[in-house]
């Protein structure tokens, strides 16, 4: 847990994993959790634009202070894991967090 402890009671049902924010903005629909290995302020802003509530940084990536501040302002939960993207996604998927399909006309 990096920040957003106070928002941990929020239920989430779907997630997506990507290092490409362009793709998150283009293909994601109603996913609440973003898994990414990318570390910059745009990750937080992308999540905020998509109404996501939680970002998990994979491969032990650590968000910067600026990013943590942005996430706090938006009430977004930040977490980090040493697991790689594939494994982190797999674990969450196995626990019932689905991908929710790609809705893209």
């Amino acid at each position: 847990m990096v920040c957003g402890e106070e928002n941990l009671d929020h239920d989430v049902y779907s997630a997506c994993g990507s290092d490409m924010m362009s793709d998150v903005l283009a293909y994601v629909k109603d996913q609440a959790v973003l898994l990414t290995g990318l570390v910059n302020s745009q990750v937080i802003r992308t999540a905020e634009m998509m109404d996501m509530v939680c970002i998990v940084f994979v491969r032990s990536k650590k968000p910067t202070e600026d990013m943590i501040e942005l996430a706090r302002e938006s009430g977004i939960v930040l977490m980090t894991t040493e697991k790689r993207m594939y494994e982190a996604c797999g674990l969450l998927y196995k626990s019932g967090l689905v991908g929710n399909g790609v809705k893209h006309e």
Binding site: D19, M20, M21, S22, D23, L25, A26, T36, L38, N40, Q42, V43, T46, E105
Partner: peptide, 15 residues
């Protein structure tokens, strides 16, 4: 490398 430039910006804006 910053996570953008996938060529989805304008199409996405239209969508």
């Amino acid at each position: 490398s910053l996570g953008f430039g996938a060529g989805m910006g304008l199409p996405n804006m239209k969508r």
